[in-house]
Structures are given as C-alpha cells and as structure tokens.
Design a protein around this nucleic acid. Structure first.
Lengths: 195, 195
DNA sequence: ATTTATTTTGACATTTTTGTCAAATTGATT
DNA sequence: AATCAATTTGACAAAAATGTCAAAATAAAT
C-alpha cells in the first residue's frame, strides 16, 4: 500500500494561511485558494472535505501557534524583564510575518463560533499574572490589574501590524517608512511598559 | 411631488453598521442585513443600487467619524495632557460602541481597495506630531518618534475591544468581567503613556 | 506488466448570493 | 376621487460559490 504524499495538502494549507493571515483577504473563497495554489478546486474537498474544515484547520493551527508561544514565556524561568523582552521578540516576529492572524481568528470565532483548542484555558496564565503582581509591588511596572499589563503588551505588539493600511493613509507614508516604524517597536514598547 | 422619506434607507444603513461595526460579522450578506432590518432584500438595491455601494457608504461614514474625532483633538487648543485625555475619552467611547470599526475598515480596504475620503491626508496630523515632540523635549512623555506616541495611543485604546473574543478565552473570563476591565482602560492608558 | 491505492481532474448538481424588473402599494397633492 | 411619484414587494434571472461523483492519471509494490 503506497503512501504517496505529494505536497498538495500542505500547499493548499500554506496558500490559505498566506491569503488569510498574511494578506488579510478574509473574504477569499476556496476557488481563490485553489487557483493561487495552482491545483483544481476539487483538491480542497479531497484533502479537507469542506471549506469550513479547511478554515477550521487554519484557525486551529494559528491558535496552537499562539498558545505555544505564550506558554514558552509563561513557563521559562528567566528574570521578568528578560522574559518580557523575549516574549516581545517572538510576538513581534509573528505579528510581522502574519499581521492578520488575530483578525482572522476573531472573525472566525464570531462567524462560525469557533472555539479555542482544548477544554482548559489555552494558556497557563495564572503564574504570569502573579509574577506581574510581584513586579508591580517592586515598582518595576505601574500598579494596576495585572491583566491590563498583558492587554497593553498584546495591544502594543499586535495592533500596529493589523492596522497598517489605516496608519499608512493617516500618516500619509509609504510601506517602506511604515515598516521602518514597525522595526522600532520593541524598544518603544519596552520604554512604555517599564517605568 | 411628494417626498415621503420613510425611514427605510436609514434603517438599512443602521442595521448594516450594527452587523459590521458592532457585531463584527464581516461575512454578512445583503440578505442578512435586509432580514434583520425587516425589509425585503430588493430595498437594499432600491436605496443603494448594489451591495458594494452600501458597503462603501458604511465605510465612508465610519471614516468620516474617525476623521472628525481626530481633527477635533488636533485643532483644539487645550493643554497637551487634557487634549490627550479628551481624545482617549472620545475614542474609548467609540471603540466601546463600535468595536469592529477598524477591523471592518481595514478588511474593506484590503478586499475592495477602498480609499480614505478626500485626496489629502484625512487628518491634519502634522501639528499634533510637532506638539508631541515638544512634550518629549519637556520630558512629559518618553522620547521617540512622535508617530509611535500616536500608534501607542490608538493601540491601547482600540485593540482591547476588537480582540475581546480572544482575551475572554485566554483569561477564561466572562463578558461582564471583561467589560469591567475595558472601563478601567482610560486610567491605565494615561498611566502608561505619561511618565 | 499488472495490480493497487492514492491522487488528480473535469463534468455536473446544488446552494447561496446578487441583481433586475415590473407590478402593486402607499400617501401626499391636485 | 383622481393623479402622481416615491416606495415596497415578489417573481424571475444571473452569477458566484460550494459540493458530489466517477473517470483518469500516477506511482509504488507485487
């Protein structure tokens, strides 16, 4: 019994990810995906059964990505500041490579009632929150609900990428200039978050 | 020649705005909109000619909203700190009321190549940037490219609302708890932005 | 070379979504 | 009440998107 495994399934999934997560074309159809992958549309059904199942798989893998990254930070035992720096690096790289990942995820959650993987909370966030609390007591970061620190962190990292088309017009600057701004984000975020 | 002006046109537009900007259902069809407005779908064509023109009108009015708000701040002559406080108030209220406005706008810009209204830059942002520079010299806010201050501001205001479905799952909290967090954002943002 | 299971592909069917048109309705005006 | 234009509505047409199926092609294994 031969197992051929041509790369078609992976190719289709990668093309879908490019279209949704990188280019942000949330209204793309199975036809768009198949055409740009250079395979007939029926292959989508052969490998994924239906449009929704392809979407759900892209969603789940994006979610896995996010979860793994988060947990890497939560579970590492670096000093707090380095831990956050590390986290910013990882997430900025991700946001840069897949600017519309969160947009896609939120949209799919709304439209198809997709749930995050696993029953349990995807991230063991409690330890991190406790650590943040300690840092606040030490005066390293401003005192508020620790969840705000996490929300601030994500906002400052993610939003500039997903809203790029807007800012480019508001500031009347081209892609290259905006890209330059994005590359400066790490230092900016650190300066903002730590007192 | 009688001009009746029943409220149907406005009703359709409001329904579309609710679905897109408030509920974030970016894949909604003209049928969804008409059904929820309680009118036959042909009314959409009677008043807006086509689906795209309805979408474009919602987009343009959302853009106008954003522009007007921004310019109010840019053109007011309050002291800097009050100006920013004022701006945060206005934008948080808006983000709270229409959490998916930016998401819709970015998506439409990507999918239909919508442009922002007017040829010129929608916001007279140069004055604001200069003012931010002055504040940085005074040491009121950390020193970086002034555009980062604006980007930080928008990120901290907008992202928490549009990513609500994600955070509710990550933190494993319900809508009420998350709402409480959102209401605390103004103070948090001010604390973060000003040294 | 034949067999076998996997993969690819095109033809077709179904469903969904959008758009068109003309008839019916409405309510103000003459 | 008759007129008239704006509005509403349903029937129909067209287009777009998804899904099904069986036949053809492929490549490994006997």
């Amino acid at each position: 019994m031969p197992a051929k495994n041509t790369g078609t399934e992976a190719l289709l999934k990668e093309t879908a990810k490019r279209i949704f997560l990188i280019e942000g074309r949330l209204h793309a159809t199975t036809d768009d995906i198949a055409k740009e992958a250079g395979v007939p549309r029926t292959s989508v059904h052969y490998y994924f059964r239906s449009r929704d199942l392809l979407f759900k798989q892209v969603f789940n893998e994006a979610m896995m990505d996010l979860t793994v990254r988060l947990n890497q930070v939560v579970e590492s035992d670096l000093p707090f500041r380095e831990k956050i720096e590390n986290f910013i690096d990882i997430c900025l790289t991700q946001a840069f490579a897949f600017p519309y990942m969160e947009t896609f995820m939120v949209t799919e959650m709304i439209n198809h009632e997709f749930k995050l993987v696993d029953k349990e909370s995807p991230v063991k966030i409690k330890g991190l929150l406790k650590e943040i609390k300690t840092e606040m007591a030490h005066g390293t970061i401003p005192q508020t609900n620790p969840m705000h620190f996490v929300i601030n962190l994500f906002s400052l990292i993610t939003y500039p990428s997903l809203a790029a088309p807007l800012y480019k017009q508001i500031f009347a600057i081209n892609s290259a200039s905006y890209l330059k701004l994005l590359k400066e984000r790490k230092q900016v975020i650190l300066k903002v978050l730590f007192t």
